[in-house]
């Protein structure tokens, strides 16, 4: 099948709400034309609003994982906004350990000596949602944004505190379980590591995590 015909078949299927996996359409053309067809289809996807017909199968592995990831990001929203859940989820997707992130921060801010332990402790508290989002410095958020490939503004807005309480949307009346829904106790707060010689690096780390946006 030539490129034009394959493209029209794909568009017809999309408009009729019976879109197949894209591989099926790419298989219709020769290998040399696949890239061009992929570009054309990407433009079509980008320019049409989502419709109900596009709803993916609930059994699709990517849908399940994306839904779980969004829940993981949002369900622990609190004083650090959704930043803790976002950091944990993106780290998991990338296969990174928190150590990889703290090493990158240590390198970026040239933190040396015992202050490294303090930075690790603060980062752990950040992922646990135990820091005030409004106190995180823009420098720190920018560095984290670079590590995870997002814009700094994304992390600034993600760290805005979320007030507890129900959203205003009406909820349909449904049978409810008798379990407490928000029974998760806040994690126990650990003490900051005591540094024998708190130097300028330790002060820098404190400013990064607790000094406010302009620190």
């Amino acid at each position: 099948m030539n490129l034009e015909k394959a493209f029209l078949v794909a568009v017809d299927d999309l408009n009729a709400g019976r879109a197949k996996p894209v591989e099926r359409y790419l298989e219709l053309v020769s290998r040399s034309e696949q890239e061009e067809l992929a570009d054309l289809l990407a433009m079509v996807f980008a320019n049409r609003p989502p419709t109900k017909a596009d709803t993916p199968s609930l059994d699709s592995p990517s849908y399940k994982r994306a839904l779980a990831a969004l829940d993981e990001v949002i369900e622990n929203a609190g004083q650090t906004g959704i930043l803790p859940g976002t950091l944990v989820s993106l780290r998991r997707v990338r296969g990174l350990k928190s150590q990889h992130v703290t090493e990158a921060l240590v390198e970026r801010f040239k933190v040396g000596g015992q202050a490294r332990r303090l930075l690790e402790w603060f980062y752990h508290r950040l992922e646990a949602g135990q820091l005030a989002g409004g106190q995180l410095s823009r420098r720190l958020l920018t560095a984290l944004a670079e590590i995870f490939g997002v814009s700094p503004e994304d992390f600034v807005s993600a760290s805005e505190p979320i007030q507890s309480g129900p959203p205003r949307f009406p909820s349909p009346v449904m049978a409810r379980s008798t379990r407490r829904t928000s029974s998760a106790a806040p994690p126990a707060k650990s003490e900051a590591p005591t540094l024998e010689q708190p130097g300028p690096d330790a002060e820098l780390v404190r400013r990064l995590f607790q000094g406010g946006r302009d620190a």
């Binding site: 879109a19 996996p21 894209v22 591989e23 790419l26 992929a38 289809l41 990407a42 996807f45 980008a46 989502p50 596009d54 709803t55 993916p56 699709s60 990517s62 849908y63 994306a66 839904l67 969004l70 949002i74 929203a77 906004g81 959704i82 805005e160 505190p161 979320i162 007030q163 309480g165 959203p167 205003r168 949307f169």
Partner: peptide
């Protein structure tokens, strides 16, 4: 309104999953 914003952003992202999935597969 951060709380509503979060819920609605999630809802829009869920509705965009087909586009995300198709684009990721293509690219």
């Amino acid at each position: 309104d951060q709380k509503d914003l979060l819920v609605l952003a999630r809802q829009l992202a869920l509705r965009s999953l087909p586009v995300i999935e198709q684009t990721c597969r293509l690219c």
